[in-house]
């Protein structure tokens, strides 16, 4: 099936199998490998991207469902060589270790801060509920989101 979509501001028209997942479209077809796959039960959130303004787990969305949509992935977050405040804050606060959860974590936090620009620690921890990080114990991720909220 042929679908058209915009990813990080760039239009694409591609042929996909009806069962192909959005995450595989991004990774295997469009070569946007920043979005990661960590599970097969939509639990880990490593695959989170922004689709039409909502944070979605791209492993639970079929590529064909993304037809006509506007998608933002981790690769599209920095603008004109400037890191997004969230990226900067994750860096400053050591909010990542192995980095595998990070793209999904940052995209979820991006959405969280759009909905709630000044979250409490409690709200941040709840907001990140769908994202698993095995390295950081979340401590510095929370700090990073707090710092980003202040800078944004």
């Amino acid at each position: 099936m042929q679908i058209s979509l915009t990813v990080n501001g760039r239009p694409y028209t591609v042929d996909v199998e009806p069962r192909m997942l959005l995450v595989h479209l991004l990774r295997d077809v469009l070569d946007l490998t920043g979005t990661n796959v960590g599970c097969d039960t939509s639990q880990c959130g490593a695959c989170t991207v922004i689709m039409d303004g909502e944070a979605v787990k791209s492993c639970t969305v079929l590529a064909v469902q993304a037809d006509g949509s506007d998608i933002l992935t981790i690769e599209g977050l920095a603008k004109d060589g400037e890191l997004h405040p969230l990226q900067e804050a994750f860096w400053n606060n050591h909010g990542l270790q192995c980095g595998y959860c990070t793209p999904g974590m940052i995209m979820t936090a991006y959405h969280l801060l759009q909905v709630n620009p000044n979250p409490t620690e409690e709200e941040i921890r709840h907001g990140l509920e769908g994202n698993i990080c095995r390295c950081t114990g979340y401590h510095n991720i929370v700090r990073a989101v707090q710092e980003a909220a202040q800078r944004m």
């Binding site: 990774r27 946007l32 490998t33 920043g34 979005t35 990661n36 796959v37 992935t73 981790i74 690769e75 977050l77 920095a78 890191l83 990226q87 994750f90 860096w91 400053n92 050591h94 990542l96 980095g99 595998y100 990070t102 793209p103 940052i106």
Partner: peptide, 18 residues
């Protein structure tokens, strides 16, 4: 802050499956 991070926070780092 870590020199590893710029590649990781921008999605440019390459893991095996990438």
């Amino acid at each position: 802050r870590r020199r590893e991070d710029p590649a990781l926070i921008t999605g440019r780092a390459k893991y095996t499956d990438d």
